[in-house]
Design a protein around this nucleic acid. Structure first.
Length: 614
DNA sequence: CTAGGGTTAG
């Protein structure tokens, strides 16, 4: 029996792949009903929903081109919509022009909504402004969908005044538009404004909550993200996948393992499907809390793994010092899942080669990046290479790599070289790197600290005090060291010499007791790590109150014997604290997992996973 | 057939 138009429309809705649609196409052709305008439109609309390959678009385009009828506004809108989500969003304008040139058609609110999204996707500011102007000319000044799209677009462009202007023109913005505005403000760095708006909203649904939580998460204000999540639960709002993803991002940033685990349990209890996105967020959270085995477990259980998932695993292994495994994973991603790497994957991979000292492998992979995958190395990749050579002690190679970089070396490259000079105690080259660094970023805290450490290592106190003087002259302050430890799901924050904790008196006793026992075991403090040329005893005293030591002592007194002490530090760990941690792991038979600005240190039985190489 | 929230690095 030949297929009817009506049947065909129902069947189109059931199609989810291009193949199925093509088969249906055959039947429809045979039945001679292909060019029914509503069937055609349905075809195009369905294709628009699965725009993974350009073939879908070509296919719809063929349909359009061979249709004996003039395309309807609906069909053209569908084409604009489909292209807006494709890798070539600006092709949308071809169909917009067709609408303009067709006597019987004129663009409607749908047209502009999709067109604006296309400009957003393409980061095309000029086109976006043109679309905005056209929408206004045609009277869509108060269309909620169009205006909402504009807010989103200008936020993506970073045009704060533009999205504010759009919002200010609105008579009474609805829930969706208000949410868009909350996101826009947060994204442009005005989290406070976003929160004000959010608090003033008469009704807030899940998405509105998510927008605000994500706003905090993205700006690195993770504590506030978690606080707001608490409030959301208290209000009994239904919690969904997107909420969990933002919460996990915050947990990962803070290294809040207990809270992250809680999310994982919640997800399993409530049988939320672990999608790629949620899975990736979980994997990332576990890695950033130093739980390599758990992270990999979640990773392998994921039903689907895309380039985000693979990259986060590779990056996680790199952070935790497992360079060989990074390379292994990199090979498997293409072999097993057919996933191709992107530039982020390579940053992670090269970083992994660097921390593991796999120079030859790193060089090969760097070459393959362009040749095999067509990815042009960017600044970050060059930075990784300099770091890799430098760490391995191949300082000349690092320098010549900087010299042959086709792009102007950035602060990151000089910083990597400077750090390498610290590790390998090369004063002269270190001073050179510092000079270059100062021309680019004269207020880079880390650089001053590195250089000062280079001098201190060789007991060059004149150099140390010069560094201090030049910091003072430029008004650069050393960023205060801060360590965070989670106990019973509560995060406790310690700064250097910080006495503000409620249990400080006990902590002080514990630090002294801890150091006494370490000294008995042979620990000697390395006073040359102190920035200033003060008296030896004072130096030792200053070292005692580094934030890591306070946090470790607090961990020792508050956590059960069997649990590892997990610490997150905002700066790089200093040599003395690193040494202390090694001793504690042995003397107190306690695992310590420390995340510093760059990587993880897993201390066990007196050794660190970084092999003192960081 | 529209609009708002979510994942990898630095």
């Amino acid at each position: 029996m030949p297929i009817s138009t009506h049947n065909a429309i129902s069947i189109v809705e059931l199609c989810s792949t291009l193949r199925q649609l093509q088969q249906l196409h055959g039947h429809v052709l045979a039945a001679g009903v292909l060019h029914d305008p509503s069937l055609f439109a349905k075809f195009v609309a369905t294709l628009a929903l699965c725009p993974k390959t350009p073939h879908h678009l070509n296919y719809s385009y063929e349909l359009l081109a061979h249709s004996p009828h003039l395309p309807s506004l609906f069909a053209l809108n569908s084409m604009i919509r489909a292209h807006s989500k494709s890798p070539m969003p600006l092709q949308s304008f071809l169909f917009y022009r067709q609408i303009l040139f067709a006597d019987a058609l004129s663009p409607d609110n749908y047209t502009f909504t999709f067109l604006i999204r296309a400009c957003t996707q393409a980061s095309a500011m000029g086109a976006g402004r043109a679309a905005h102007a056209a929408a206004l000319r045609r009277g869509f000044r108060s269309d909620a969908h169009v205006q909402c799209g504009l807010i989103h677009m200008y936020a993506e462009f970073g045009s704060r005044d533009a999205f504010r202007g759009v919002y200010a023109e609105l008579q009474s913005p609805d829930l969706v538009t208000q949410t868009a505005m909350v996101s826009a403000c947060a994204e442009s760095g005005e989290v406070h404004l976003a929160r004000e708006l959010f608090d003033k909203m008469p009704h807030r649904d899940v998405v509105a909550w998510n927008a605000m939580i994500a706003g905090y998460s993205h700006m690195g204000r993770s504590r506030e993200a978690l606080d707001l999540f608490g409030l959301m639960q208290a209000e009994g709002v239904r919690i969904g996948e997107a909420t969990m993803v933002s919460v996990l991002t915050a947990c990962a940033h803070l290294g809040a393992l207990d809270q992250g685990k809680w999310v994982h349990v919640y997800v399993e209890k409530n049988k939320l499907r672990i999608t790629v996105t949620l899975g990736t967020a979980l994997v990332d959270m576990y890695f950033k809390c130093g739980c390599v085995a758990r992270a990999m477990d979640v990773f392998w259980r994921m039903k689907e793994r895309n380039v985000y998932a693979w990259s986060s695993a590779i990056s996680g292994l790199a952070m935790n010092g497992a360079g060989e495994k990074c390379i292994e994973l990199f090979k498997r991603m293409e072999e097993e899942d057919g996933v191709l790497p992107n530039e982020v994957t390579f940053v992670a991979l090269l970083h992994g080669c660097g921390v593991a000292g796999l120079v030859e492998e790193g060089r090969e992979l760097f070459k393959s990046m362009k040749i095999r995958y067509g990815i042009e190395p960017r600044l970050e990749h060059y930075g990784c290479m300099v770091d890799m050579y430098g760490r391995a002690g191949r300082l000349e190679d690092a320098v010549s790599f900087i010299n042959v970089m086709p792009v102007e070396p950035h602060a990151g490259a000089w910083g990597a070289l400077l750090n390498a000079c610290r590790i390998h105690k090369n004063i002269e080259l270190g001073e050179f790197a510092m000079e270059k660094m100062m021309q680019l970023e004269s207020r880079n805290h880390g650089a001053y600290v590195s250089l000062s450490n280079i001098y201190a290592e060789s007991r060059n106190w004149g150099g140390v005090s010069d560094v201090r003087e030049s910091m003072k002259a430029k008004g650069v302050r050393k960023e205060p060291g801060c360590s965070v430890i989670e106990v019973d799901g509560q995060l406790h924050e310690f700064f250097v010499g910080d006495k503000s904790h409620a249990k400080y008196p006990e902590i002080e006793v514990m630090v002294k007791e801890m150091l006494r026992r370490l000294r008995l075991a042979g620990y000697v403090s390395r006073t040359n790590q102190v920035l200033f040329d003060i008296q030896e005893e004072e130096k030792e005293d200053a070292l005692c109150w580094h934030s890591e030591k306070l946090a470790i002592a607090f961990g020792l007194m508050s956590l059960r014997d069997s649990v590892a002490i997990r610490i997150v530090k905002n700066l790089r760990v200093c040599w003395d604290c690193h040494e202390t941690s090694k001793f504690v792991s042995k003397v107190f038979d306690r695992e310590i997992v420390m995340r510093d600005r760059n990587r993880f240190h897993h201390f066990k039985d007196g050794f660190c996973s970084c092999m003192d190489y960081w």
